[in-house]
């Protein structure tokens, strides 16, 4: 608001889409490594289904998509104008 200043317009490392893609590749590599780890250490969970390789990976991915996509549908019912209560 009152503290706007003018400098800081220079290009940053993240402004380059190629660098953002590099970060995505890094994430994919981390995902692959985390699944490979399941084959190095066999898991001893409290529940038998925990011992399925990549259980947490699949659960995380599916749960995340379920939450986001169903919330998107929820918006159809719940969304109102910003000044609805005014």
């Amino acid at each position: 608001m009152s503290n706007q200043k003018k400098d800081g317009d220079e290009k940053r490392w993240l402004d380059n889409p190629k660098n953002v893609s590099k970060l995505v590749y890094l994430l994919v590599a981390a995902c692959i490594l985390s699944v490979l780890a399941d084959f190095v250490w066999s898991r001893h969970g409290h529940f038998s289904f925990e011992e399925i390789p990549a259980f947490y990976a699949v659960y995380g991915f599916v749960a995340y998509c379920f939450i986001v996509l169903s919330a998107k549908q929820l918006r159809r019912i719940l969304k109102r104008d910003e000044n609805y209560y005014d």
Binding site: L27, A30, S34, A37, D38, A54, Y56, A57, V58, G60
Partner: peptide
């Protein structure tokens, strides 16, 4: 490993 899988994915 379980937590990292969950968060990375």
């Amino acid at each position: 490993v379980a937590q990292l899988q969950l968060l990375f994915f």
